[in-house]
Amino acid sequence: MNSHNKKTAGKLVVIAMLMFGFGFALVPLYSLVCDAFGINGRFLEIESGEFTAVEGERQGELLARRVDKDRTVNVQFFTTVNQNMDWKFKALDKSVKVHPGEITEVRFYAKNMTDKDVVAQAIPSLQPSQAIKYFTKMECFCFTQQTLRAGEGREMPLKFVVNPDLPKNIGTITLAYTFFDTGLKAKAEQKKNVALVNQ
C-alpha cells in the first residue's frame, strides 16, 4: 500500500513540476498569441531587432510595388517617457497622411537631460490593434536599445509602409513610443547598434 501511495505521489509531483514549467511557458505562448491577435498593440519584434530590420526592409520593398494612390491613411505618432527618466522625447512629425504602400520616413527627437549616460529602449504600441499586421516597419530606433550620452540629443528615424490590404474601415493609425530606462550601463558595444540604426 505504501509504495502504491509513493508512486501516486511521484506522478503528482511530476504534474506539479510540469505545471510550474507551464507557468513559464505562458511567456512565449503569450507572445505568440499577441503576435496573432495584436494584444495591447504589442509588437513581437522587440526581442529580435536585427532580424526584423532585414525582414522589414524586404517586406517593405514588396509592398511598395503596389501603392494605393486612391486611399489616404492618417498615421499619428505620440511619445511617452517612463517614470524617473529625464529625457525629452517628441515626434517631429506629429501625424502624416500616407497612401498605403508608400514608403514613408518620419523623425523623432530624443535628448538626454541628465548628466549621466542612459541606455533606453523604446517600446512601440499601435492602435487599433487590427492594424498591427498591416504596419511594416523597415527601420526603427525601437529595434535596438538607444544610448544617449549625458546631455546628448539626437534625431531618430522611423521608416514604414502601410500595407495596402489594410481593412477599409481603418482610417487612422496611432503609433506610440514609450522610452524606458533599461538600467544598463552604457557600453561601447551598444554604441555600435545605435550607429547601425542611424545609418
Binding site: 495591447n40 498593440g41 504589442r42 505620440f78 517612463n82 517614470q83 517600446i123 504600441s125 499601435l126 492602435q127 487599433p128 490593434s129 496611432t174 506610440a176 514609450t178 524606458f180
Partner: peptide
C-alpha cells in the same frame, strides 16, 4: 492605462 502600451 498601462505603461508602454496604448489602449483605445
Amino acid at each position: 492605462a498601462i505603461p508602454g502600451y496604448i489602449n483605445e
